[in-house]
């Protein structure tokens, strides 16, 4: 298979580069190969969009579950503070 054909077919490598670029650096050559691939591959163009949106959604999910009312029960908290006070008094 020719060099160009390999780039055009290889979605596994293209999606790898999409992920790597979104979080780190890829080389100039890799960036070129990814661009060539994306021009011809509608699957990977969809993947690229979805990948970015998934990142944002995962972040939102974590943020919203942090804000959700997840409270420790009062007894547990009371005992915990007692434990801390005990430790403080030891010193």
């Amino acid at each position: 298979m020719s060099y160009l054909k390999r780039i055009i077919y290889n979605c596994k490598q293209a999606t790898f580069l999409i992920e790597k670029r979104s979080l780190g650096k890829i080389t100039f050559r890799e960036a070129f190969e990814l661009r060539v691939h994306l021009v011809g591959c509608s699957f990977c163009r969809i993947y690229k969009k979805q990948s970015r949106v998934i990142n944002e959604m995962v972040q939102e999910l974590f943020r919203s579950s942090m804000q959700a009312d997840r409270k420790l029960d009062d007894n547990f908290k009371k005992e915990l503070q007692v434990r801390i006070e005990e430790e403080l008094n030891k010193n």
Binding site: R70, L72, K77, Q81, I84
Partner: peptide, 15 residues
């Protein structure tokens, strides 16, 4: 430390 539980326990638990 006397106010740790009241101020931060729920936050840390959520985290």
């Amino acid at each position: 430390p006397h106010h740790w539980v009241a101020a931060h326990a729920d936050y840390l638990f959520g985290f």
